[in-house]
Structure formats: structure tokens, C-alpha cells
Design a protein around this nucleic acid. Structure first.
Lengths: 191, 191
DNA sequence: CTCTCACTAGAGCGATCTATCTAGTGATGC
DNA sequence: GCATCACTAGATAGATCGCTCTAGTGAGAG
């Protein structure tokens, strides 16, 4: 069994995904984590905000690796992008349209209400964009084109998650995947 | 002065944008609306859920008209799309990165927690996609291409809002606008 | 064996949440 | 002039919120 601190972080991340920041209670977190309430304030003396910032980072940053898994290791970015969006759609359906982006809900909630939490989400998104830029540049794209494609990848994925979860349909994810793949194909005409 | 019911709906819509559904309290709503608390339950006997569903619809549906304002009335979809994303970026900066999509925050919050509210957000997104499909089809695109472009427009805009609000930067909106405009240009080679 | 301290355990505080309830007001129809 | 009813007005209930507080436990150091 994972450590108490790890169980608290994991439980919080799961609840943030589905219920958001304000929709998740501390009692709910320790209950799901099977942790004593006192331990929460032992590990996170700054309370919900400190727990929130650390969960955003710890749950969000690992997702940058998906650029390696899906795209850097693919034969070309176009099929890599198609696979990535298809994989996201599959996960979404398997989890009954619940598991999409680990931080998007929280990011929108806190963007105008808590600058500390907002900065944590910004760090994660910036890390994803940096990773995407690096991966696309390795395929020969200019720094400028690589960053534009990285932004298009992340924004299209995030927006498609919003619509797919709301509509309970994978159509937006599929359409967004095709659009980003086409954009990558246009930026890489020589393959 | 607008009617009490209208003031409640307007105040709720403004608070939902910035604070989300769970982050907005009923006391906060009537205070901002300068309405008596009892009036809230007079006009919305179903409580917060009924108010929420009606606000989602009443605040969300009018945005479909932006497809007319920006794109249908433009010389061609490409410049219309560019103008639409630039206009969104301008509004975002003017409101200190607060006013973006009226229903996205709520949509993510309720997608897995309240099916009634989720359906309300789905109706609004579907209405936007229908309007976008119609407007793009009027420029000669096939029904299939028009819907794909409408989905790309809405998903890119929604995702760019997430990143732009989090990063407090218009870069994602600008990059997303260029990407969707380019996609429109590819689908409409003959102009 | 004892001291220390990280951690466990949960009761309880003040504030706030949604919702209900009663009472009062004022325009309209008869 | 009176009855009706849509609406105003806000106190209050009951639950839950984030957070603080005290007490207890148990492994490792000396």
C-alpha cells in the first residue's frame, strides 16, 4: 500500500478530475484515501490550497511524457497525433466520459479566483508546450512551427475534451485529431 | 432596471463564468442581483439546479450568433475565423482574462456529477455546432466538411480559452485562430 | 529502558452552503 | 373597497465546509 501522503495526493487528483476543486471536500479526500484527517494537515499544513497546488503539479506534469510515448516514438508526427487522440477517446469511453485532462476543470475554476493555484496550472501547461515543441522540432520543424503545432495539439485536445465530455461522444476528439494531424502534415510536406 | 428574474439570471451567468457552478453561492447571486432571497426560489422553485440549467441555456445559446456576426458576414471564412479569435483575445485581455466561454467551466464541473446540467451544456454546444455547420455550408463546403470545421472552431476556441486564461497570455488564442483559419483555407481552395 | 518525534486519530469550531418557512407588500380584477 | 396573488423579504434549519486542536501511538536513537 502506498504511503499516506501518496494516497492523499492520488485520491485528490481523482476527485479533482471529476468534481473539480471547489466540488471536492477535504473529508471526502481523506475518506477515499483511507487516511486520517489529521494526516492531511500534517503533510499539507497550508491546507487545501497547498494540497491543490501540489496535486496539480504531481498529477499534471507526468502527462508531458505522452508526447514521447505517442509522437516521438512514432514513425511520423501525423500518425502519432492520430494515435494520441484515438487513445484519449478510448480512455474517455472506458471511464464513462470521466477521465480526460487531470487539470483542465481546476484550471478554469481557479483562473480568476486564486492566483497561486492558477500559476500551478500554468506551469503544467507550459511544461507540456515545451515538451511538445521539443518533440516536434526533433522531426525537423522550425522552433516557431513546432511551438505552433504544440499549442494546436494541446488546445485542440483540451477543447475536444470539453465537448466530448459534455456531449458524451467521441466525435469532437476524432475531428480534432484529424485537424491537428492535417496541420502537422502541412507543416511537414517532405516525408 | 431589468426584472428581478433577469437580474438573477444575469448575475448567475457572470458568477458561473468566473467561479463555476460549485464555486457560486445562492447568497452571492441574490446579493449581486440586488434581489431578495425569496425571489430566487419564487422564480426557480427547483433551486440551484433549475437556475443552473436555465442560466446555461440562456447565457450559452446566444453565442451561436457569433457565427453570423463574425463568419457569415465576412467576405470569406478564413478572415472571419481570424477576426473571431482576435475578438475573443481582445475581450479576454479587456476583462483581465476572466470573460471567455460562458459555460465551459460549468460544463467540465458537471459532466460527471449532474446529468441534468450536463444535458443543458450539451444542448448549447450542439446548437453552436449546428449553427457553425450551417454557416460554413453556406460558403460551399460539404455538410461533412462544414461540420468538421465547426467542431474544429469550437474545440480550438474552448481549448485556447483554457490555456490563455491559465497562462494569462493571448498566444494560445492567436495560434489556435491561425490553425483553424488555415484548415478553412484548405477546405475552400477555390476563392 | 526511555525519550523523541513523526504520524495517527478524530472531535469540534465558526462559517457557509442550499433550502424551507412565514410574514408582509402592492398591483390588479371584480 | 376588498380579495387575490405574484412577488418581496429575510430569519432559520440542517448539513457540510475548511480548519484547529488535543490526545494517543509506535518506531528508532541514545
Amino acid at each position: 500500500m502506498a504511503s499516506t501522503r501518496e494516497r492523499i495526493v492520488t485520491a485528490t487528483a481523482e476527485l479533482f478530475r471529476r468534481n473539480g476543486y471547489t466540488g471536492t471536500g477535504l473529508k471526502q479526500i481523506v475518506s477515499r484515501a483511507e487516511a486520517p484527517f489529521g494526516s492531511l494537515y500534517h503533510f499539507f499544513p497550508g491546507g487545501k490550497k497547498q494540497l491543490g497546488t501540489e496535486v496539480i503539479r504531481e498529477a499534471g506534469l507526468p502527462y508531458a511524457a505522452l508526447f514521447d510515448i505517442y509522437i516521438a516514438s512514432a514513425d511520423d508526427p501525423v500518425t502519432g497525433i492520430e494515435d494520441a487522440f484515438a487513445g484519449a477517446a478510448e480512455t474517455l469511453v472506458e471511464t464513462d466520459y470521466a477521465d480526460a485532462c487531470p487539470i483542465a476543470t481546476v484550471a478554469l475554476e481557479v483562473a480568476s479566483t486564486d492566483d497561486g493555484l492558477r500559476r500551478a496550472t500554468a506551469e503544467v501547461f507550459e511544461a507540456w508546450l515545451d515538451k511538445g515543441t521539443e518533440v516536434y522540432a526533433a522531426f525537423g520543424l522550425s522552433r516557431r512551427d513546432a511551438r505552433a503545432l504544440a499549442i494546436a495539439t494541446v488546445t485542440s485536445l483540451e477543447g475536444a475534451f470539453v465537448l466530448s465530455r459534455s456531449l458524451r461522444s467521441t466525435e469532437p476528439l476524432e475531428a480534432a485529431g484529424r485537424a491537428v494531424a492535417a496541420q502537422a502534415g502541412n507543416l511537414l510536406p517532405n516525408r
